[in-house]
């Protein structure tokens, strides 16, 4: 099949970007979206032009590198997958495909479709961990039984891949779903209880400080999340935060 691509090209954060149109031919429906981009880039290189920069790594939907806003949706038209798992059979011959980077002031564009998501690392550094030192003497892993449903909800929240689709799709560029997923993962486990109050407060404060928008509960984030992280996590974060700030003596 043949497609018309409208790709966002931007030299760097300091330059102005624009949509550039490319035509790609003989695309197989079994190709992944990124393989189609590879093909485009090979043709650009042959012509001596700068290929389109985009983040990608594992190409199996788990590293969270890929980040394209395709035809108005993060990771494209299909649900529950990342861009690298999107296949060309989801498009029609002759279709025009818009490809843009994540857009949020907290995710500045580095080049073309590559954005800087280091703000996510900073949110985790603010408390998204359990303070336990490496030691060969931690208590036995089975010493504290954890109800299966708690372990399962912790796991579901922990499957977040940090791709940033939630921020990208949110009309307020809010990072609530990302932050809530980590808070919820850890607070669902007995090991995470000890620091739960300080964790939620410092992570939320960090998120605010970095300039992410607020949540207006539109729910786009959860719909577009490639891992299906649920809004329940945001509710849990809200509860944890309320509890922590009321309890706090500071």
């Amino acid at each position: 099949m043949n497609l018309k691509l409208k790709v966002w090209r931007q030299e760097s954060s300091k330059h102005k970007g624009k949509i550039v149109e490319y035509k790609v031919h003989d695309i197989s429906p079994d190709m992944s979206f990124l393989e189609m981009m590879d093909q485009l880039n090979q043709s650009l290189i042959e012509k001596g032009q700068d290929p389109v920069a985009f983040d990608h790594d594992c190409r199996e939907g788990i590293c969270g590198s890929c980040s394209m806003y395709i035809n108005g949706q993060p990771h494209g038209p299909e649900n529950m997958i990342t861009t690298c798992q999107l296949h060309m059979r989801s498009f029609n011959d002759g279709e025009t495909v818009y490809i843009e980077p994540w857009r949020a002031s907290t995710f500045p564009i580095i080049k073309d479709l590559v954005v800087d998501r280091s703000a996510f690392d900073k949110i985790i550094q603010a408390g998204g961990y359990i303070s336990v030192n490496t030691s060969g003497n931690s208590q036995d892993a089975n010493a504290i039984p954890i109800p299966k449903e708690n372990a399962d909800s912790a796991f579901d929240a922990a499957t977040c891949i940090g791709c940033g689709a939630c921020v990208a799709t949110c009309k307020n560029s809010s990072a609530m779903l990302f932050t809530a997923a980590k808070i919820s993962h850890l607070s669902n486990l007995p090991q995470g209880q000890v620091e739960s109050s300080s964790r939620v407060i410092s992570m939320v404060n960090k998120m605010d400080e970095l300039g992410f928008g607020n949540c207006t509960n539109t729910g786009d984030c959860a719909v577009q999340c490639p891992k299906g992280i649920s809004l329940d996590n945001i509710a849990k974060m809200n509860r944890e935060y309320l509890k922590a700030s009321l309890k706090s003596e500071k």
Partner: peptide, 11 residues
Amino acid sequence: QCVAQGVPFAR
């Protein structure tokens, strides 16, 4: 170590 860190293994 991993359980202490909060790794949600299957139970």
